[in-house]
Design a binder for these strands. Structure first.
Length: 590
DNA sequence: GTGGCCTGTCATGTG
DNA sequence: ATCACATGACAGGCC
């Protein structure tokens, strides 16, 4: 309805008459006379306006109460419980809280049996009650609705400090929890619907059991904790700044749901506060992932170390017995004379594996072949074992001054010193142990007979170089036999390996050939089937054509020839004759 | 304890 | 005849 507001002074009698006329016309439509009366419409408008203002005030008050309730979602630092408490509130606040709790004696008992919404309503009523009792000495004046609510942001800003029993109750300007809610919060937390809050605290405590209080970074805890705990978003909002009770209100002061709590949440401060609250013992709560990650890093590092140690251990465990064996083997050596330290060093080349001998030492050895038979056993084992170990390693750098330079052997021939050994899969401990066993056995034999060459050299040298090397030394029969055996066995070993390798390759190739031949056979069989079917079709067509031609043939009397007595025969020149079957053979012969 | 697998070694054949 | 290589057979170790 369109209302035309005309000042009464501007209404003339003519207008009133016009209104009466209109009313009389519309009276049948049920329209009252007051519809056309401006004064009455004006009164109704004012009444509606007053109702609207009343309603807005009620809504604002309700919002204020709700915000005040949310503002109490705080942790109690003193008790460690997840209940609201004021950290920065003066001691008078406790008095006020106690007073307020005394002012609402009936609420706690009711809360136990109430739902969450009902409790919220009770809290709102509580705040109303407190506001109503502000004139009493023990009353707490939590909010001044007109002053604490920002119309735009619905932000609680208590600007007026309540006076309690003559003492000024200071409420920080940046937000302060209302102490009368503490007890109400205790009751709220006892509600099963809110047990998740306390459960979260328990979870935190449980997580702390897995934490390392010494090695874990505190700053990492809140993030992970919040990841697993959606409820903690409340606390996140609550700890927007180190002084969490204040910022708690700051965060919840805005009803804008678009506000992202994570943007304003200070995880460090929150973490610190939370852990100060729930971990009075100083146990750091550590996110398991971070902790595990750190532990993983440590373990990785430790694994590396262990790997190194394992290598060393393997070296020690595997080689130390070799030391003993070598010792025993060398101890068998009945060297008549003691050798010089230099010779003892040179004797280490006996035990050297593929690459680890020294040329100068070898030179000394070669130049003093006779003296090679004297070797101090006490110096032998360690050097030999180490060299043997390195000789087994594919990563051992080669000694540049090798014997091949002396015997004019191209280095490229000497580098693959042990092709058979190089093929040994070193990743296999079994193969490695076997190789070591075999290798050490021949090495020990060679050392026992004072052979100044390494087994590797004996086996892998080319014939010419080997003969040249042998010609430079004078060996007895035993030494020569052993050298020949070592070379023969080494060669044969490599040959056997190659033979088996070829055998396996042949098997694989034969299997491949078998598969290929099977496929070809299938192809040929399929092709043969196609040809057979085609041949059958041709035969069938030929028979049909034959009968057609034969049925068209007639004798002089017009009688058809009997297919049993005659047949059509084609000669080589392409002519077709009707031949009696008795003469069929003769025509073929012609 | 047993069987399979791998490897070294020996005996023998071959070019 | 000698040598290097190939290969079957056997034995020992490991799983």
């Amino acid at each position: 309805m369109m209302e035309v507001e005309i000042p009464p002074s501007m209404q003339s009698q003519q207008d009133m008459d016009l209104i009466d006329i209109l009313w009389k016309q519309d009276i049948d439509l049920g329209v009252g006379r007051e519809v056309f009366d401006y004064n009455q419409r004006q009164k109704e408008y004012e009444l509606e306006k007053q109702k609207k203002l009343e309603k807005e005030r009620l809504e604002q008050l309700q919002k204020e109460q709700e915000k005040a309730l949310y503002a109490q979602l705080q942790l109690d630092e003193e008790t460690g419980e997840f209940i609201p408490i004021q950290q920065a509130v003066p001691i008078e606040t406790a008095v006020a809280t106690q007073a307020l709790s005394n002012s609402i004696p009936s609420k706690p008992s009711l809360v136990q049996d109430l739902s969450f919404d009902e409790c919220l309503k009770i809290l709102a009523d509580t705040f109303q009650l407190a506001a109503q009792n502000e004139d009493t000495p023990v009353a707490y004046h939590p909010l001044e609705p007109s002053a604490s609510i920002d119309k735009n942001q619905n932000f609680i800003q208590p600007k007026q400090c309540p006076v309690i029993a003559g003492t000024l109750l200071t409420i920080p300007s940046d937000g302060q929890k209302m102490p009368e809610v503490d007890q109400a919060w205790e009751e709220l937390l006892s509600i099963p619907e809110l047990q998740c809050l306390t459960n979260d605290i328990d979870n935190i405590m449980d997580l702390s059991m897995y934490s390392n209080p010494e090695s874990v970074a505190m700053t990492e805890a809140p993030d992970s904790y919040n990841l697993f705990n959606p409820v903690t978003t409340i606390e996140k909002s609550a700890d927007n700044s180190p002084v969490y009770p204040n910022d708690f209100e700051d965060t919840f002061a805005s009803n804008d749901p678009t506000i992202n709590a994570s943007e304003t949440f200070n995880t460090e401060s929150f973490c610190q506060d939370i852990f100060n609250l729930v971990e009075p013992k100083g146990i750091n709560i550590v996110p398991l992932a971070d902790n595990s990650g750190q532990l993983l890093t440590e373990l990785l590092n430790e694994n590396v170390d262990i790997t190194d140690l394992s290598l060393c251990k393997a070296f020690n465990t595997n080689k130390r017995p070799d030391f003993n064996d070598t010792d025993s083997g060398v101890s068998v050596n009945t060297s008549p004379c003691a050798t010089s330290p230099a010779q003892s060093v040179g004797s280490s080349i006996y035990g050297e594996g593929h690459y680890g001998y020294n040329d100068s030492e070898m030179e000394d050895t070669d130049n003093s072949t006779k003296n090679l038979q004297q070797k101090p056993p006490e110096n032998f084992p360690g050097i030999f074992t180490e060299d043997t170990y390195f000789s087994l390693s594919p990563f051992v750098p080669l000694d540049t001054n090798s014997f091949e330079s002396e015997v004019c052997n191209p280095p490229e021939k000497e580098l693959p010193a042990s092709p058979g050994h190089s093929k040994i899969p070193f990743t296999k401990d079994k193969s490695l142990s076997r190789l070591e066993a075999r290798f050490n056995r021949d090495e020990q034999r060679a050392k026992a007979l004072q052979i100044p060459f390494s087994v590797d050299k004996i086996v892998n040298l080319p014939v010419d170089n080997f003969n040249e090397l042998m010609s430079k030394h004078q060996f007895n029969e035993a030494q020569l036999a052993l050298i020949r055996d070592i070379r023969r066995r080494g060669k044969n070993k490599v040959a056997a390996q190659n033979c088996r390798k070829r055998k396996m390759e042949n098997i694989v190739e034969l299997e491949s050939d078998l598969d290929r031949l099977k496929y070809e056979k299938e192809q040929l069989l399929s092709e043969r089937g196609e040809y057979n079917s085609s041949l059958s079709l041709l035969k069938k067509q030929l028979g049909t054509l034959y009968m057609e031609v034969f049925n068209k043939l007639h004798d002089e009397n017009g009688k058809p020839y009997s297919p049993h007595e005659y047949s059509l025969q084609q000669t080589k020149d392409g002519n077709v004759f009707l031949v009696p079957k008795a003469k069929k053979v003769n025509i073929k012969k012609e």
